[in-house]
Amino acid sequence: MIFQDMKRLGILGINNRIGRYILPLNERKNYPLVDNKVKTAARAQAWGIAMPENYLIIENNGDLKNLASELAQRKSFVVKPANGSQGNGILVIIEVLRDQNDKICFRRSNGKIMSLGDIKHHISGILSGLYSLSGSNDIAIIQQKIEIHPVFEDYCFGGIPDVRVIVLNGFPVMSMVRLPTRTSDGKANLHQGAIGAGIRIKDGTTQNAVIRNRVVSEHPDTHKDIRGLVIPDWREVLDLSARCYDMVGLGYIGVDIVITPHDGPILLELNARPGLAIQIANQAGLLPRLEKISKDAPQGLSARERVDYSMSVF
């Protein structure tokens, strides 16, 4: 009976997601375009889709020699694995400092200080495949740290929020914004306790918010009411997500977007196996929306036209 309720409410389950959407719509050969951030970045550049600037790409331990001089010229940066997932292995450095011995050291987004050795160890871990999806050797990316958009300042505890859009055949179908909390350690990761707030596609306002499975109305750390928040540059966010479909040719993707204060929405990463928690954040099932697109949406539209369609129906 609860299964029947789930079905009636159109909740998408894991098996259905894989069997009906991911396997038929996402061609295996296009996976590296989303799983490998270096490849995503190259493709995005070709398509004129903005992504965070890569300062340094480290492919083997030998490249670590120049790390100190490279990092010394930066104010802030992010270290991440090219093949990572779920935000694992990502290190956010908000400040580059000198300690009392005038040695270079780094302040993490959670306030902890790391030495150069700590950073090198972390990168070695990435290179040896500690965080990669397949467990094989990986590449580490040192990337521009994105600043938080002023709109979100009262809605986040450390870290940067990101917007997840589920895109079916180029049509945005469901969206949420992930707001870091103290428990999520400043990461926009729902599993670790970040807030997921469902966004209405029509106008970009947040509707419901949840932490894990629990409905919340205010941010647990900043106590700000989360509902009714208007996502800045919403139209551009949707346009960007719709264009990602054309860029990678995968029919069912999750597009993660960060809204920067000066450059507007930029693509953070793509996900070929987007999770199902977005349904909890939206308090709505994905199935009716996916079916609406499969059945009713017109074919052969441009990215802008697809966004128009989605904004008119969802």
Binding site: I2, R8, L9, G10, I11, G13, N16, N213, V215, Q283
Partner: peptide, 25 residues
């Protein structure tokens, strides 16, 4: 392609919340 038994637990709250909001039921 049906649900997993574990999803019963995962989405139980969601179903209840959606029910109380009378969405689709």
């Amino acid at each position: 392609k049906g649900y997993r038994l574990s999803e019963l637990i995962r989405f139980k709250n969601l179903v209840e919340q959606m029910r109380s909001q009378k969405k689709g039921l």
